[in-house]
Design a protein around this nucleic acid. Structure first.
Length: 755
DNA sequence: GGACAAGTATTTTTT
DNA sequence: ATACTTGTCC
């Protein structure tokens, strides 16, 4: 078959693998997405598997979309052999774990007690709101028990398939979590809502409890394909195992070295479990890299080889060595940004690397600010990958809350969110009175509003409403807005419903104040309206739930904020996974930054930092710059920094310069001519505060940890002195005199010795 | 109900 | 430094 001919032998072996479990260990840039899509095409076209019997699961919508696109007839391999017909494509089950589970749960909703098929999916913001509510109800202080951390514990439990009833509480903290977990889960049920983790956990529980249901799905799905298998957590693994339980045709693609989501429950050891649980599996290694130069690949290999418990892949490329890796020391983070921006310009001029093929990667989002400022200062465009996320904007979340409430009036979280947005005289006090009253009436908040309307119409209630005339009026007026919208729900198209929601809610008037900010927010809502357009011709009673589901499971900007202006991409190392660029700048290559300081004393966490570094390095096709600083300001505190340990793992012969070997002044000049000017500026202060003691070059000093050493460089800042000390046998250390336990030896305690 | 001061925490974030 | 939350006052 023509479309298989462009695969290399290993890729082809994977694509054409026979029945039974198959594990493909695929290095970066080895064409794993291609293998996955060709495998699907192969199964349908050559093995005669009906498309509706195939399920391919991914982690991101983007990956799912990419697979579908590549299978679509418009995206043919050269020579025109079309992989699948539109009809076949449509029958495939391709989606994220969460989307696939949501679909199953809706179809089987009658067997998950407490929820009906209209359930809404709560995103992280909603989940936190619900945790806070649970804390409040349990009279717990949300200062002492931070909602995010409690939510994290609950999420971890759910990912380990531990429901509230099975949650083991030994410590006091766990006891608190246990109580909140129980209440949280009840609240979800009362709101007819599921959180992300529930989608997976409830599906697995359903399969475990109902033989008939699991059998039906097992029989239907003959072939299960899983992308990024190293990122699966326990529920996901369990789910896959259950689904593949009958036919055992499980095709998993993994790279242990790119597992960077353990803090979300991902466990690369699932790759090892796969090998134990499916002992007869086929194993295929994809080791040819089509992306990076030999030098970059070799540097990556030296970084990752320090990790244990991994299959050591022998990555190779036919691309040739290319240029060396550049290790750069900047004076501080300002200079780091200046260097990066300047070098991007130079690359474009000298090596014809388009700026849009450059990427700047960092460990934490906070690091993007200085880079952005520098790009703005120079008037250079840039693409910030996931800044404020579209769906996290207040106006977007508010309108979505309206729509969710219209769909599922019992959704108390959405109700609390918008009952006073825009402001309509229903403050926190009135809301909590309403919620209490609803509790007494044994109904939802919305139910209470309905009761209020009945009371207004003359019905006598066992519990009369407790509101002042003013509050009562405000509530009634809001209730009528809501009931009108609900009445419209199944009558008008989704875009129409969207528009009428905007105007009836008062949101439109709110954003018509003529300010720039209001205009931006209005534009965002119009952006959201564009999404509703996809459902313009869908039956009104189906459109809203479909739209809400799509939006709930596509929380990333996913094309919405993608501006194609060009310019370098600014992104976190996590966000970089799966991407590639001609030139990659990794900034903040300092100890504490990468590896992050929170990972310093944990071996597993440190290995993950290493993988993160590896992911960054292997994004680069031709040029790789690793930038660290001499000193760095964190949380307003300036301190000397140490180059990342990962830099030391790259052999010298792969690296162009090692600036930190020379003393600061030369080092500065070696990097760029203007650097020394900046350096001189910062290095020549008259101390405003007297410094405790001064060291001069040549002084012999003693350090409590490093022993005896000699000062080889020094410079003064406004309130401190920085020295470099050569400790025989231990290398050169940079130390702050105010901080380091240093003592002068064999010399009188002279003060003010300027070098 | 909104404005302002004070206090606090600050990794990553596929869904 | 700073962004975000909470508390207090008008």
């Amino acid at each position: 078959m023509i479309f298989l001919e462009e695969l290399n032998p290993k890729q082809r072996e994977a694509v054409e693998a026979g029945d039974g479990p198959v594990l493909v260990l695929a290095g970066p840039g080895s064409g794993k997405t291609r293998v996955l899509t060709y495998r699907v095409a192969y199964l349908v076209r050559l093995s005669g598997v009906a498309p509706w019997r195939i399920m391919a699961v991914t982690f991101t919508n983007k990956a799912a979309r990419e697979m579908k696109e590549r299978l679509a007839p418009t995206h043919l391999p050269p020579h025109g052999s079309s992989p699948l017909s539109p009809h076949q494509l449509q029958q495939l089950t391709i989606g994220t774990f969460h989307a696939v589970c949501a679909r199953i749960l809706r179809r089987e909703s009658e067997v998950i007690s407490g929820w009906d098929s209209n359930f809404v999916i709560y995103d992280s913001g909603d989940q936190l709101a619900l945790i806070r509510q649970a804390l409040r109800e349990l009279n717990l202080d949300d200062k002492k028990h931070r909602p995010t951390s409690i939510h994290g514990r609950i999420s971890t439990a759910k990912n380990e398939l531990i429901g509230p009833e099975r949650f083991q509480a030994i410590t006091y903290q766990e006891e608190i979590v246990h109580r909140v977990y129980k209440r949280y889960q009840e609240l979800l049920r009362d709101n007819n809502a599921l959180d992300f983790d529930d989608l997976l956990m409830k599906t697995v529980n359903l399969f475990r409890q109902r033989d008939d249901v699991v059998t039906a799905y097992q029989e239907r799905y003959q072939h299960i394909l899983v992308d990024e298998f190293q990122d699966t957590n326990m529920v996901q693994y369990e789910l896959v195992k259950l689904l593949a339980g009958k036919h055992q045709h499980l095709f998993a693609v993994a790279d242990e070295d790119q597992s960077i989501y353990s803090w979300r429950g991902a466990d690369y050891r699932n790759v090892l479990r796969f090998r134990e649980d499916f002992p007869s599996h086929g194993l295929i290694l994809l080791e040819e890299n089509y992306r990076s130069t030999g030098t970059i690949l070799e540097a990556a290999r030296h970084i990752i080889r320090h990790n244990v418990h991994r299959v050591d892949k022998q990555l190779f490329t036919h691309r040739g060595d290319g240029v060396k890796v550049q290790v750069i020391e900047a004076y501080d983070e300002q200079e780091e940004a200046q260097y990066v921006a300047g070098q991007i310009v130079r690359l474009q001029a000298e090596s014809r690397v388009p700026t849009s093929h450059c990427a700047v990667m960092y460990r934490t989002n906070a690091q993007s600010r200085l880079l952005e400022e520098e790009f703005i200062r120079r008037g250079m465009p840039y693409r910030l990958v996931r800044g404020t996320r579209f769906y996290e904007r207040k106006e977007v979340r508010d309108i979505l809350a309206y729509l969710r409430l219209i769909h599922n009036p019992d959704d108390g979280v959405s109700m609390a969110r918008i009952i006073n947005a825009p402001p309509r005289g229903i403050g926190a006090k009135t809301l909590s009175a309403l919620e209490n009253w609803a509790f007494k009436l044994d109904t939802s908040t919305f139910g209470a509003l309905k009761k209020l309307q009945e009371e207004e119409a003359g019905t006598h209630l066992a519990w009369p409403s407790p509101f002042s005339a003013r509050a009562g009026k405000a509530l009634l007026s809001f209730a009528s807005v809501l009931t009108t919208l609900i009445a419209d729900r199944d009558q008008i198209t989704l875009p129409e419903l969207f528009d009428t929601t905007l105007s009836r809610s008062g949101y439109r008037d709110l954003l018509q104040d003529g300010s720039n900010e209001a205009e931006d927010r209005w534009d965002n809502l119009q952006e959201l309206r564009r999404v509703t357009q996809q459902f313009a011709s869908t039956d009104p009673s189906d459109a809203l739930p479909l739209f809400l589901e799509q939006v709930a499971l596509v929380s990333d900007a996913d094309g919405l904020t993608e501006d194609n202006e060009g310019g370098p991409a600014l992104l976190t190392l996590h966000a970089a996974k799966g991407l590639e660029f001609q030139a990659v700048f990794m900034v903040g290559m300092d100890e504490g930054m990468l590896p992050h300081k929170r990972s310093l004393d944990d071996i597993e966490a440190m290995q993950e930092e290493r993988r993160l570094c590896y992911v960054g390095v292997t994004r680069a096709m031709d040029h790789l710059y690793l930038v660290h600083t001499f000193r760095r300001t964190t949380f307003g505190q300036s301190a000397l920094s140490t180059p990342s340990r990962f830099l030391h793992d790259i052999p010298d012969e792969l690296v162009d310069i090692r600036p930190h070997v020379s003393p600061p002044r030369q080092r500065a000049r070696a990097v760029s001519a203007d650097r020394s000017v900046v350096w001189a500026d910062k290095a020549s202060p008259t101390p405003t505060h007297p410094v405790r003691s001064h060291f001069a070059i040549g002084d012999t000093v003693a350090h409590t940890k490093f022993g005896e050493g000699v000062i080889i460089a020094s410079h003064l800042t406004s309130d401190d002195q920085e020295v470099e000390v050569a400790f025989p046998g231990q290398g050169i250390k940079r130390l702050s005199v105010n901080m380091a336990p240093l003592e002068k030896l064999d010399q009188e305690t002279a003060v003010g010795g300027k070098q």
